[in-house]
């Protein structure tokens, strides 16, 4: 039996199977007794062993230079969800409060001097938007006590009056005819009765 094991050496396929870990009992017995086949297996194994050693040394070195980044723990995920929910709620509240403030704006006291009634577009815009803006900026709360409200409305009214006055001044300044350099040349705006037309009429006649 022993001699029959030694008679036939392992084939290449059997050596490959041995390398892959698929060793039958017969092959194992042969390898235990045949130094030639054992050497062949060792020779076939050597490049793989070298590859393993070199690549492991490389990856250990490379891995050592990489930072240990612990992943986000589950509480963090919960925390992130909570933050997102809070942000969404805040956005919703802002979304609701802005139209409320806008609706409230016309009821806010508007101080207009008789001059404000002049058909100036800038002044109109200022009268409409300023109280709403001021109310929004001062975070006016409708449920606030009356005393606080009156205390707040006085400087507010003054401020509105000052703003309106300023806007009127700007309007007036814009309306005033400023002397233009074109005036020195006595240039006239082109009218339908220009010299060219007059000449054309004369020719027609």
């Amino acid at each position: 039996m022993k001699s029959s094991i030694h008679l036939v050496h392992l084939s290449d396929d059997q050596i490959l199977n041995t390398l892959s870990g698929d060793v039958s009992a017969g092959v194992a017995a042969h390898l235990a007794n045949c130094s030639i086949c054992s050497r062949r297996v060792a020779e076939a194994e050597a490049p793989i062993a070298s590859f393993k050693a070199v690549t492991l040394a490389w990856s250990e070195r490379r891995s050592a230079t990489l930072p240990l980044q612990p992943p986000a723990a589950p509480p963090l995920a919960w925390h992130r969800r909570a933050v997102m929910a809070a942000t969404a709620t805040a956005a919703l509240l802002v979304g609701i409060s802005v139209p409320l403030v806008r609706n409230e704006a016309p009821s806010a006291p508007v101080v207009t001097s008789p001059a404000t009634a002049t058909p100036s577009s800038t002044a109109e815009v200022a009268t409409v938007s300023t109280p709403a803006l001021t109310a929004a900026m001062q975070h006016k709360i409708p449920e606030a006590p009356a005393a606080v409200e009156t205390a707040q409305t006085k400087p507010q009214d003054e401020q509105i009056a000052r703003d309106n006055q300023m806007l009127q001044n700007i309007d007036r300044a814009l309306d005033n005819s400023v002397e233009s350099p074109a005036d020195t040349y006595e240039l006239q705006p082109i009218s339908s009765q220009g010299p060219a037309r007059e000449r054309a009429k004369t020719l027609e006649n």
Binding site: A46, P47, I48, S50, F51, A53, V54, T55, A57, W58, E60, R61
Partner: peptide
């Protein structure tokens, strides 16, 4: 990568052989 191998474990000749074998694999 072969330079990362511990120098005590192998001689210069075997290091060259290991490099060659690794390259081929």
């Amino acid at each position: 990568a072969a330079n990362f191998l511990p120098s005590k474990e192998c001689s210069a000749e075997s290091r060259v052989l290991i490099k060659e074998q690794t390259k081929h694999v």
